[in-house]
């Protein structure tokens, strides 16, 4: 039996799914008439947003936690793909469907690494907390530079990427050397 509040949430998700589907079908019809890639971008965007809403609705009502989690994650990926097709620069080709997905996948992993780095930092103490926070933050910067590159919202994305990489590589090197050095690694007893 589905909880009433879950049912309401799922219903709201389904309403937007239907609305997004109607918009995407109209845009596909317009694309058929005009053969314009820009119109196709809109159609792809609304199709993916519609699918994302559908998965979210099923995720809400699913009783199996694993299924709910898988649907939830897939919903986010579809929404990101849909929004990317709108945010990608207007290059007049189908690149937004192909190369974009790959870059998006990489940047998502950067954000995951960044969030996990920050979470690990929160649970750590002393110097490790600072190192992990810096590494986590640098992954976020790397992800941000990839998004900036894909969407064209920022000119200096290469500088941002290089800066993020320098910070990440340097802090990783210092971090590993610090804990591998005598007195900090597993080879020496730590004094309380």
């Amino acid at each position: 039996m589905v909880n009433p509040d879950k049912a309401i949430l799922a219903f709201i998700e389904l309403v937007s799914m239907i609305a997004f589907t109607i918009i995407s079908l109209r845009l596909y019809r317009l694309y058929r008439l005009l053969k314009s890639i820009n119109i196709l971008r809109g159609a792809v965007c609304f199709s993916l947003l519609s699918m994302s809403q559908a998965l979210m609705a099923f995720s809400v009502v699913s009783d199996n936690p694993r299924t709910a989690m898988a649907l939830y994650a897939s919903s986010s990926v579809l929404a990101a793909g849909g929004l990317y097709s709108l945010a990608a620069p207007h290059q007049g080709n189908y690149g937004f469907i192909t190369v974009g997905g790959l870059k998006l996948g990489i940047s998502v992993l950067d954000y995951v690494a960044g969030m996990l780095g920050l979470a690990a930092s929160y649970n750590s103490r002393g110097v490790a907390r600072i190192f992990l926070a810096v590494i986590g933050f640098s992954y976020m910067v790397r992800g941000a530079s990839l998004i900036a590159n894909m969407t064209g919202v920022m000119q200096g994305y290469v500088a941002l990427l290089v800066l993020g990489e320098i910070v990440r590589a340097t802090s990783a090197a210092v971090f590993s050397l610090f804990y591998a050095s005598p007195g900090h690694g597993s080879g020496a007893e730590e004094e309380d």
């Binding site: 109209r26 845009l27 119109i39 809109g42 709108l86």
Partner: peptide, 14 residues
């Protein structure tokens, strides 16, 4: 006519 607003607001020109 139906998509006027969507086209304008989302910048979907051709």
């Amino acid at each position: 006519r139906r998509l006027r607003r969507v086209i304008r607001d989302f910048g979907l020109d051709f």
